[in-house]
Amino acid sequence: MFKHTIIALAIASITACSQDANVESPLTGKELAKKYIILDGHIDVPYRLENNWSDVTKATEGGDFDYPRAVAGGLNAPFMSIYIPAALELSGGSKELADKLIDSVEDIVNRAPDKFAIATSVADVKAQFEQGLISLPMGMENGSPIEGKMENLKHFYDRGVRYITLSHSKSNHISDSSYDPLRPSKGLTDFGKDLVVEMNNMGMLIDVSHISDDAFYQVMDITNVPVIASHSSARKFTPGFERNMDDEMLKRLKENGGVIQINYGSTFISQESRAYYDQYSADEKQFAIDNAAVPDSEIMKEFKKSYRDTRPFPFATLEDVLDHIDHVVEVAGIEHVGIGSDYDGVGDSLPTGLKDVASYPNLIDGLLARGYSEQDIEKILSGNVLRVWQIAEDYASSH
């Protein structure tokens, strides 16, 4: 009954909002970026700082995110990714690393409480926006830290995590991965199926980015609330790349009431970039074999530099990202698309025009140029994800 109610409300919202779809905004991208909440579903700051610490409460030379650039771009609610490498599923240490990365997000807030605040609810995000603070909600990328224990789900909820990407680059004890040729569970594990139910009951959003297609459809069959794909794109533009979502999945996401948040990485957006990356990976692997070289060795660093110098990487563009948004809107509707840039997570593969968190106004100007109304832009920037998050909160409060 609740699932049907969600769908009915979503359809009613779509109908009500479509009336103003062609109303042009007199404001610029920069002005709209300041007017509305911008929520980005996936930014890998914590793991970046784990590897190479810098003070993001101030301007930094590296990375894609810091406070001055976030302010310049109008970014209000970047989900801090608590990224856990897939290898830790077998070696151990997932939970410990997750707690350490959460500590690092709290440390950002503690060092600059006049700039940042932890957000654990929709109400927090809205209140902190009014206060001029940048909210730092958290999402866990890879469910490995759950370690097969439901009490760990509560532990991380209590620590502020509000979504979990069920798996990452390898299948784990929860779900098969889209990147993993081995699919031991044919989708979700039995524990994973139980976890989806408990995440619903707790108010923890389910993130279907990274998981296999079979796992996605099993989640759709089980969940009683809408899901997110926190940093995925449209497979139409990257045929065969399972990490992105195909049109049938987008249609099912619409039925569920969920949201896909578009990943900016060039290899997610452009087939030309994807093909280049696949060829580079094959050539790099062969070079390492031929030279008995290990990753991150000087000879491998020189190989990468020489390769890129002689065969420049074909970056995607802002227009390519807009094409993905257009396609999701065409297939699933304006209520089901958002932003999940993957800043600090896709290396130097970001598209031209969208190189860091100062560039959200460029995206908005692009949306305006393509005829999106101010109301629809607000939905893309944050409204759609906040709607889903609120539904998850409301469902949990009733269970």
Rank of each mutant, 00 (worst) to 15 (best):
V125F: 04
P312L: 07
N51R: 10
D344S: 13
I11S: 02
V45T: 14
I222G: 09
M140L: 12
M204K: 03
S297K: 11
N172K: 15
A229K: 01
Y264F: 14
N263P: 06
G74M: 00
E198Y: 08
M245L: 14
D356M: 06
K170F: 12
P184G: 07
S230K: 00
S144C: 10
I43R: 05
L250K: 06
G192E: 05
D176K: 06
P145A: 13
D344K: 03
S233G: 05
K193E: 13
M220N: 12
S270T: 08
E374I: 11
I146C: 12
S373I: 13
Q131N: 11
Y83S: 04
L97V: 07
N384A: 08
E330K: 14
V331W: 04
V56H: 02
F156V: 03
P85A: 01
N224W: 01
A87L: 03
V331D: 01
I391K: 05
D342T: 05
I334T: 12
M140D: 09
G132F: 13
I6Q: 11
S91E: 14
D103A: 10
L97I: 01
K251C: 07
D66A: 07
I11C: 00
S230W: 00
V259D: 07
R252Y: 02
A16V: 12
L322K: 00
Y163F: 11
P312N: 11
Q286N: 10
L9Q: 15
G160Q: 11
V23Y: 10
I14K: 15
D323W: 00
S169H: 12
T238C: 08
A392K: 10
G29L: 02
I174N: 03
L136P: 09
M138D: 03
D44H: 07
